[in-house]
């Protein structure tokens, strides 16, 4: 069947060790936690990542879906999805994430001596580092997590205020009525 081929061939298959492993025992509690966390303003503290770890992963997510003239991973609160998920249904990915952070810092120091964090680098340097590692498990896991945190249901901790959905033009209503799009509306007018 083909959906898989599409995921594969679009380069989306390597989601990184552990990122999709299922642990349903954790999920109900995690969802309840997320629903609570999402309601809190200002943003809650991180629950599973140390602040400096969260800053590094947030910086990576912000290069995967940057803030431009439209909101990106930062505005969507992608890092809060990642923090929650790594403590729950995706916790098996935590070692890969931590190893990835160590590697990012090493590469950051090599690229700009004296630098101690990836997050402190200018965007162009960050992009160059990510391009070096984009085939690896860490980056693929981060790409997966960023997409879920940007475009997934807000109950999972990301996509705050539905900014990811607004970016795409996805209405997320429970029902719709025809006409759905430009071409069927045009055809209906002609009839």
């Amino acid at each position: 069947m083909t959906i898989s081929r599409r995921v594969f061939l679009a380069g989306a298959a390597g989601v990184g060790a552990g990122w999709l492993l299922l642990d349903w025992a954790q999920v109900d509690a995690a969802l309840a936690h997320a629903a609570h966390a999402v309601q809190q303003r200002p943003a809650p503290p991180f629950t599973h990542l140390a602040p400096d770890e969260a800053a590094e992963l947030a910086a990576v997510a912000a290069r995967i879906l940057p803030t431009t003239d439209t909101p990106g991973a930062t505005e969507a609160g992608v890092i809060y999805f990642i923090d929650r998920a790594l403590g729950a249904e995706q916790r098996k990915a935590l070692p890969t994430m931590r190893a990835g952070i160590t590697d990012l810092r090493r590469r950051a120091a090599r690229r700009k001596p004296g630098t101690t964090t990836f997050a402190a680098l200018p965007a162009a340097h960050q992009d160059a580092i990510l391009a070096e590692i984009e085939q690896g498990e860490f980056f693929q896991g981060m790409r997966f997590a960023t997409m879920v945190g940007m475009f997934g249901d807000p109950s999972h901790g990301g996509n705050r205020g539905g900014v990811g959905w607004k970016l795409l033009g996805f209405e997320h209503r429970a029902s719709y009525e025809a006409p759905f799009g430009y071409y069927d509306a045009e055809a209906a007018r002609r009839r």
């Binding site: 995921v7 380069g11 989306a12 995967i64 940057p66 790409r143 879920v148 970016l167 795409l168 033009g169």
Partner: peptide, 30 residues
């Protein structure tokens, strides 16, 4: 749907992260 589109919306060989990709996703989802 949005997550799948974010992961696999691009063509093979197209860089699937960064600001160009984000603009591609936003323009073409619908």
């Amino acid at each position: 749907l949005p997550i799948f589109w974010g992961l696999a919306g691009g063509a093979p060989g197209q860089r699937n992260w960064g600001s160009d990709y984000k603009a591609f996703l936003a323009h073409n989802f619908t």
